[in-house]
């Protein structure tokens, strides 16, 4: 368990390197989510996206990136919404331990 000052006011992890699977579980619980394999697939993809582009994705590039990496079935906003309700790019980034996406309202 990480203590509260490891997170910013909105619950995003301050340090990328603090993230590990247990931390993801902790953040997800606080958001009322139970992580399944489908969640983990997207979380790893978000971490890959960040490593590749040095930025957290907005919704549109995330959908496209999912389509490219995981196939058209998963590269759809409705699929991501079913896993990370509300704002998938923002919520997914949060659980993946990434900074808040810049272009997310």
């Amino acid at each position: 368990m990480l203590c509260t000052n490891a997170f910013d006011q909105e619950g995003f992890l301050r340090k990328l390197s603090d993230w590990e699977p247990q931390v993801a579980e902790q953040i997800a619980r606080a958001e009322g989510l139970e992580l399944t394999c489908a969640h983990w697939e997207i979380l790893h993809l978000l971490r890959d996206y960040y490593r590749e582009y040095d930025a957290s994705p907005a919704m549109r590039p995330l959908v496209k990136y999912c389509a490219l990496q995981l196939g058209a079935d998963k590269g759809r906003s409705i699929y991501l919404m079913s896993l990370f309700p509300g704002s998938p790019a923002k919520l997914g980034s949060k659980i993946a331990g990434l900074p808040k996406p810049d272009n997310c309202l």
Binding site: E52, Y53, D54, A55, P57, A58, R60, P61, K64, Y65
Partner: peptide, 15 residues
């Protein structure tokens, strides 16, 4: 500082 070059490689994902 954030890497601008790598950010630019994501432009196609933003269409």
């Amino acid at each position: 500082v954030k890497n601008i070059g790598r950010l630019l490689t994501s432009l196609p994902l933003y269409d």
